[in-house]
Amino acid sequence: MQSNPATTTWKNPLSAIIAFIHREKIAAFICCLPFVVGFFTFLIVPMGMSLYYSFTNFNMLSPPTWTGFDNYIRMWNDTRFWSSLRATFYFAFASVPLRLIFALAIAMLLLRARRLIGIYRAMYYLPSILGGSLAVAILWGRLFAINGVLNEGILEFFGLNRNFPWLGNVNTAIWTLILLAVWQFGSSMLIFLASLKQIPEQLYEASSIDGAGKIKQFVKITLPLLTPTIFFNLVMQTIAGFLAFTQAFVITRGEPMDSTLFYALYMYRQVFDFGNAGYGSAMAWVMLAIIGSMTGILFLTRRFWVYDGGYT
């Protein structure tokens, strides 16, 4: 285990190699190697390949043929592409703010709760843990089915059951999915709770001496100090919202009339149902460009509303 190779005399190549891989900088790079190899093999290579395929007509059975920008032009003229984009933005822009508002509101309420905090936290956080499962997706489909829990159970109880097809109506189907996303606000709530606890009590005491009410305190102290947390959540969840797939695949299947045909779902259809791997590759790259620019825009707006000054 020579740690200083300069003073070592090599007896054979093996000990030279051992000494080499123990040099601090080499050793660190070796530890990093899985990522380097993985990043190249499972990200760079597939993304590069798909960039090539995006300029071809490729059905995975016969070799790809070069078609230039045809896929991108076709996308521009594809009404289903635009409607999938609209559905995706609608979903993301409705679910993300609602989720953050709920998360913050409940976090503020839980901040005061002392005795049952463990139970409350469990109640609100459990949906976040289970929400991604197929079991919940199937359950959600049953909640809003014509003969489902909402109609037969809750509305029937109040005598309001009109057998409304929540999943079959163009206006309500997407809202069942938005509701499912908002239902999982628990993890954001925990992040807010952790940030709220870090705000020093003195700030509130000082401001109440100065005559600030609860609302003013919230607007002038709580909210500004939470903006870094809100920003982080906003970025991550907008990306996640843009990628919605499984729930729409299982619960609504993109129906009715493509109103819940989200971008990722349409991309899946193009490749795996219609066999258009070239078109699907182009869609993947457009998706990456959209996510990149949305994140970029959010970061550009950062300096106008995110407060980074700390607590003093």
Partner: peptide, 17 residues
Amino acid sequence: STLMLPAQVLMVPQFLW
């Protein structure tokens, strides 16, 4: 940056690979 490359973006490229 891989945080911005979730499974859905990679779905088609990785499948082809």
